[in-house]
Design a protein around this nucleic acid. Structure first.
Lengths: 140, 140
DNA sequence: GTGATTGCAAATCTTTTGCACTAAA
DNA sequence: TTTAGTGCAAAAGATTTGCAATCAC
C-alpha cells in the first residue's frame, strides 16, 4: 500500500520544487490534499479543516499564505464567485463554473459548455487578462 | 434651477415607496446619488464618501444596510468582481462587465459584446439564477 | 404615539502581517 | 549555519449587528 503513496508524495515534492518553493512539511501536506486525486475547489477554511483532520501540522495563517503562493506560481487558480470568501481551483486550465448560491459551492461547467463570441476589444490602454463566467445556481 | 431637482427628488421618493421602503432622508439622499443621472458602479465606501461630501447625513452602517436593501428589492445589482469588496450597479438589466484589476474599477461591456451559446443545463435540482461574465483587464 | 429606521460602537468574518522560533539545505 | 518558512497572536479591512435615540406617518 505504502508504495503508491510514497511515489505520489515524491511527485508533489517535485512539483513544489519545480516552481521554486522549498518543499516544507506543510507545503507538501497541503499539496497532497490539493493535487493528489481529482481536481477540486477549496476555501482556505476547508483546506485547513482537512489538513487538521488528516494530521498535517499547519496553522490557518500558513494555509492562507500557501494558497496565495500556489496561486502566484500558477499551481492554483483563484475563482471569484462571491464576495464573502475566495475559492481555489486545482484545475488551472481555462474553464468556467457553476456556483451553487445556497450551498456556497463551486462546480466546473461541463467542458465546451459555453462559447463566447464577439469578445469585445479591451478599452484603450488595457488588455484582457482573462474572462470569467460564473453561472449562478439556486435550488429549483 | 430648483424645479428639476425637486421633481427628480419626488421621483426618487416614489421609487423608494414603490418597493415598499419608507422614504427616509438617508434613503432619499443615497437614492438621489445613485439614481439621478447615468448608470453607475459604486462601492459602499465610495457612496459614503460622496454622501458625506454632498451633505447627506448618513452613517457608513446605514450605507451598507441601504445598499443591501436596495439589492433585495431589485433597485440595485451586486456585481462580483473581486473578493475584497462588493460593487453595486444601478443598471439592473442583464449585462456584463469589464473589471480593471489594477484600478479596482468596473465598466460596462459595450452592449451586445458577448453572446453566450450553448448555455449548459443546470445540474439536477438547481436552476440558473443568472450568468455573470467578468472580463478582467490589466494595463497593457 | 408607535413602529420602523438610524447611528454608533462593538462584533464578526476573512485575510494579512510582525516577529520570535523552527526547520530545510 | 544560514536563510526561508512557520505559528501565533494581533492587525487590518469589509461588512453586519445590538441597542438606545430618532424619525416618518
Amino acid at each position: 500500500m505504502g508504495n503508491k503513496m510514497v511515489i505520489a508524495d515524491k511527485n508533489v515534492e517535485l512539483k513544489i520544487r519545480a516552481v521554486g518553493l522549498k518543499p516544507t512539511r506543510q507545503r507538501i501536506g497541503l499539496a497532497r490534499l490539493l493535487f493528489i486525486g481529482c481536481a477540486r475547489h477549496v476555501t482556505a477554511d476547508e483546506l485547513f479543516a482537512e489538513a487538521s483532520e488528516s494530521g498535517v501540522p499547519v496553522s490557518l495563517a500558513t494555509v492562507y499564505n500557501t494558497l496565495r503562493q500556489f496561486v502566484d506560481v500558477g499551481l492554483l487558480r483563484e475563482v471569484l464567485a462571491g464576495p464573502e470568501r475566495s475559492y481555489f481551483d486545482t484545475d488551472v486550465s481555462h474553464h468556467h463554473h457553476f456556483f451553487h448560491v445556497d450551498e456556497n459551492r463551486l462546480e466546473d461547467l461541463p467542458p465546451g459548455s459555453i462559447s463566447i463570441d464577439d469578445l469585445p476589444n479591451a478599452p484603450a490602454g488595457s488588455k484582457i487578462e482573462r474572462v470569467d463566467v460564473v453561472v449562478r445556481l439556486t435550488r429549483k
